[in-house]
């Protein structure tokens, strides 16, 4: 066993590209995970005519995977139109890096979220304000797809970690296919809360585990 990072990840960690700030940026976004503690701050400069990202820079208070993904997504986004850049997924970033270890994939999500938020902020500043849509199962699942199951390094929906979702009177109840004493139980349930609680019409998120599923979630 060697260091669990690919050569590409190490390169991007030791010599990250596009580090810094843009003084007169068109949009800035800061994404932080209060769970793992990492923070990514992203600056973009957009050509008003072509809507192409002409400059992009980042700063990171995070682990190696965080720094490496921020570096790679700024490379991927540079020169693309904001519509194309919006579609860069964490899967794409992960592939580009040669594959993060499963427990580290959530770091890629954080950097991607920062990019999406920066673009969002840019669009909003240019008159594209979206309406408030009531939260339903579809929206919840979409958000849950941004939470990585650290056992597999894939999202919690496709890895069947979510057993049941109910929503009633602004209270979301989620049943997880994971025993409450699993090593990742606290981490995952905190992340779910962090993702769903900011929704404008959600009052509370209740999560319960499943005692019998102790062995079903193993890589």
């Amino acid at each position: 066993m060697s260091i669990p990072y690919t050569k590409k990840i190490l390169e991007n960690f030791l010599h990250p590209k596009n580090v810094g700030e843009i003084k007169n940026a068109d949009a800035i976004a800061t994404e932080g995970s209060s769970i793992c503690g990492d923070v990514v701050k992203l600056f973009i400069k957009v050509d008003p005519k072509t809507h192409k990202i002409v400059d992009i820079k980042f700063k990171s208070y995070g682990c190696a995977a965080n720094i490496a993904t921020a570096s790679i997504i700024t490379e991927l986004a540079k020169g693309k139109t904001i519509n194309k850049a919006k579609k860069i997924s964490w899967e794409k970033a992960n592939k580009e890096l040669g594959g993060l270890p499963p427990v580290k994939v959530h770091c890629a999500v954080l950097a991607i979220d920062a990019l999406k938020s920066a673009i969002d902020n840019y669009e909003q500043a240019h008159g594209l304000i979206r309406e408030k849509v009531p939260t339903d199962g579809k929206i919840i699942i979409k958000r849950l797809r941004h939470i990585i199951n650290p056992i597999f390094g894939k999202d919690v929906v496709s890895t069947k970690l979510i057993k049941e979702i109910k929503i009633k009177d602004g209270i979301i109840s989620i049943k997880m296919n994971l025993a409450p004493d699993h090593q990742f139980y606290n981490n995952i349930s905190d992340e779910i809360k962090e993702r769903l609680e900011p929704l404008w019409d959600v009052k509370k998120v209740d999560i319960v585990g499943d005692l019998d599923s102790l062995t079903s979630q193993k890589s």
Binding site: G37, G62, C63, A65, N66, F184
Partner: peptide, 11 residues
Amino acid sequence: GSACFSRSLEP
């Protein structure tokens, strides 16, 4: 002691 390092992803 960082969460990024721990086996449970917790600080």
